[in-house]
Structure formats: C-alpha cells, structure tokens
Design a protein around this nucleic acid. Structure first.
Lengths: 152, 152
DNA sequence: TGGGTGTTTGACCTTTCCTGACCTTATTAT
DNA sequence: ATAATAAGGTCAGGAAAGGTCAAACACCCA
C-alpha cells in the first residue's frame, strides 16, 4: 500500500477542498512542493479529479495563471452522465432525444434547455461520419447533464 | 489567485462603467495610475472589452484625445447565429465563451443555459482535430442560439 | 517472466501578459 | 502654412504561466 506521489498530491488537493470548499493552486508551486515535474499535477487531475468522479476543473495559462478544482453538487445527474460517457458505442439521435425528453419531463431540464439541447444534437448540426457522430453526441450530452449537476 | 495588472485595469474600467454608464479615460493617466506602459491599456481593451463581449470603444488621438467605452445594446439572436455559421475559420473556445457570456449578460440565456453551453463547447468535449473542432463549435453555437430565437 | 496497468518525467506547445520602439492623428504656437 | 506638441495605435518579442504527449519506469499477477 505504497503512497505514490500522485496519491499524496491527491490528498493535498482534497485537503484544500475540504478546508476552503475549493482548491486554487499554481501548478509550479505544487510541483516544487512535491519536487516533481509540473505535468505530474495534470496527471493527478486527469486520473483523480475527473467529471465522472464529480469534480470540475478550470484553469488559465499565462501570467497569473492558476488551476481551480471544485466539487460538483448533486450526484444523480453526474451518474447519468457518467453512464452516457461510458456508452462506448455512442448515442443515436433518437436515443439522445429520448433522454432529453425524459430529463425534461422529470424537471431536470427546463423547456428551453431541452429545446436547445435537441437542436444541438441533430445529425445535420454535428455533421460527422457515423461512428464519430454518435460518440460526439454522447460526449455532448454527458457534458451538458454534468454541468447542471454542479448547481450555481 | 493573483490579480494581474490587466485584471486590475479591467475592474477599474468596469467600475467606471458601472458608475457613469460609460467609461471615459485618458490612456496616459490610467497608465500612470497603474504604473505601466500605455499600450497595456490597449491590451486590456483588445482582450476584454471586445465586441464579442458586448462593448464598443471609441477614441481620438492628438491633443485632448480620449478613450471611451460603452456597453453595446442587446444582440439580435438570429443575426448572431448567422454570423457564427458563416465564420469560415470557425469559432475558438475563447470567442464562444465570450459570446455565451454576452448572451447571458443581456438576458438571452439563463444562468443554467449559459453554464450548459459553455460546458458543451469545451475543447476536450468536442475532441476533434483543430480545423474541424472550431467549425463544429460554430455550428453548435449557432444551432443553440437559433433554437432560442425561434421560440419568440 | 512477461504483459498489463498505473506512475513519472521531459521535450515541446499554446495561451496570456506586459513592455518598448515606432507610427498616426489632432491641436496649438509661430 | 508649418512646426512643435500632445495625444492614442500597432506590432513584435520576451516572460510567465499551464497543456500535451510519448517514452521510460515500476509494480503487480497470472
């Protein structure tokens, strides 16, 4: 049960989250603190603070750059979104419309939100050849539902 | 999170806008106030007070010169959508976010709708190679805004 | 022992910020 | 008129972040 560097950094970030409700950090600083390559921070974010696990990250480059991690709120929608993301075969237009309709009916999506989503997920808007199109649609739907899970 | 010089100047201008409905300033004065190069003001204007974000700037050179910044009126959704669709180069993530923010600020998009759109238009969600990615983003954004324009 | 999974690094890239040298335009003094 | 002066504009370039990706490494476990 060796504590890897990645684990240590994960705890570091979790502690910050616990204490302040959000974790704001500078990549180089954390890297220096743990004496590792800066890209190691990206690895930790990519493997542990993913949307599937209920985290949202935001960052800015350049002078005064930063990385911010926050917890996503309600668990139900993110789970639905995670399921969608794992739909490796992608999501057809018909299925997507059905999902949107169900979310709308149950109150998760407003009338306008549902309409907007449906418009964006159309075949002719995505306009990609078929294996990729359904995959993209799945990613879009997942991103949309996930984003709602984080309140605000 | 470090406030950069550009951020500080942005706030300065926003405060003026908030207070007087417009911001009229002299480039050298502001530069002196923040102890920076005058061209820094142009940088702030070029990156933050753009048409995409709903600002209009006007200026005059020579003696008695000035810079004036005002908020633009409410954008017309169908026209915005048409412009987006015809953007031959596509739409970068930065521009897309700016457009969404502007529509949100002007009341066309609700908070949740803006959040959802921003999440869907991210690079890593679209996940396509670069010429196509920006084109797809343009189509998605246009479809979304247009769908709302229809409902009126 | 060999293959798979997860970790770590380093080289290279993109974005953002900020300045300084040089240019253009308007006003004012001669 | 012309020259001096007083604005603002442009652009290239350097510095300061964070991002990406492939390759090397490490640790299981059949």
């Amino acid at each position: 049960m060796s504590l890897t560097l990645a684990d240590a950094i994960e705890r570091h970030i979790l502690a910050l989250l616990e204490e302040h409700g959000e974790a704001a950090l500078q990549r180089v600083e954390v890297a220096r603190l743990y004496d590792c390559a800066p890209s190691q921070i990206n690895y930790v974010l990519a493997t542990r603070f993913t949307p599937e696990r209920g985290f949202v990250t935001e960052s800015r480059r350049g002078g005064g750059g930063y990385i911010r991690i926050v917890r996503a709120g309600r668990p139900e929608l993110p789970q639905l979104a995670a399921a969608l993301r794992q739909a490796a075969e992608g999501v057809s237009e018909a299925v997507a419309i059905a999902v949107v309709a169900r979310c709308s009916a149950s109150g998760w999506l407003g009338e306008r939100e549902a309409q907007m989503l449906a418009a964006m997920l159309r075949r002719d808007v995505l306009a990609l050849p078929l294996p990729e199109r359904d995959l993209l649609r799945a990613r879009l739907l997942a991103a949309a539902l996930l984003s709602l899970g984080q309140g605000r």
